[in-house]
Design a protein around this nucleic acid. Sequence first.
DNA 1: AATGGAAACAACCGCCGCGAA
DNA 2: ATTCGCGGCGGTTGTTTCCAT
Length: 321
Amino acid sequence: MGRAPCCDKANVKKGPWSPEEDSKLKEYIEKYGTGGNWIALPQKAGLKRCGKSCRLRWLNYLRPNIKHGEFSDEEDRIICTLFASIGSRWSIIAAQLPGRTDNDIKNYWNTKLKKKLMGMLPPSQRKPPPFPSSHQGPPFQSQPQSYKECSLSYYSPTTTKSFSGLESMSVPLNFSNTTTSLATNNPSSLFQTQESWLSSMQYYPVKENLLMFGSEGSTCSSSDGSCTQISYGREVKQEEMGFQSYISNGLEENQKFMLNYGSNSIGGQNVTNGYFGEIPLDYGIEDVKQLISSSSTNCSNSLLNNIDENKTQEKVTYFYY
DNA sequence: AATGGAAACAACCGCCGCGAA
DNA sequence: ATTCGCGGCGGTTGTTTCCAT
């Protein structure tokens, strides 16, 4: 049983706001405030709009001190640094940029900044690598639905159990050409060899803050169950152990990380011929430790300190072009 | 000048967390 | 302790504008 809709969908207007609607909303809020209840606001203000729509319009467009227009280089830099540190948590990023809204930043990132950064990469980093031959599962004969992320789990040589990723590391999987990989959706273009994966880390914006904590890698953001994330796993989730302490205390020597990719379920149904598999990565615990220590710098640290460590559902978005 | 594709922007959708009842 | 409703958030879609052909 689903939740009751917040408003009568049949009787609310949708689409672009007219100047009249804008002024009605603005006048009302300036006069009475939001009253802490967006759902009731449109009726009081004489608007045939959903409360959520009013809230969005106010926050993203009408409220005072909203900054529109070109982003400065400084703003670019902040966005890139924060994105590398915390991923697509636009509200947090927006909080660091007075006058900018999360929606604005999100759009800016998706339409301009991402491409701008791509242009900064050396050509060798933009080309898709050959698909690793060690992947499991059948050859790709048609296009997979989604390859946004990969999961990195590790396997204990003594227990052979795999850990479904419960937290994630922010690692760029691929810097290949946008047009190529998006147009073809070719899985081979979405992965890099370990070597190029490593070397890609040397490039901005990932250089400074390679890893991120506090994310639940086991979650698949794609509705079709496609799930590709770089993540690491841990068995005992409820301990809420941080990555660093986990690495220090929970990992055994000789444990290896695996890059998992692809979809093993579509539309909630398991598929046997899905596009998924694993790529062994020659990362040992020392490598990971090193990566962590090198990542614990600059703003990521201060930011991460401010983020609720108990949050277990942070999503991580990776570069994939 | 017309047209098609790409880019940019605005708005919606649906999920989730939190707090009140 | 549980349920429910609201606000907040991120992802996605729809619309408009720009630009190349």
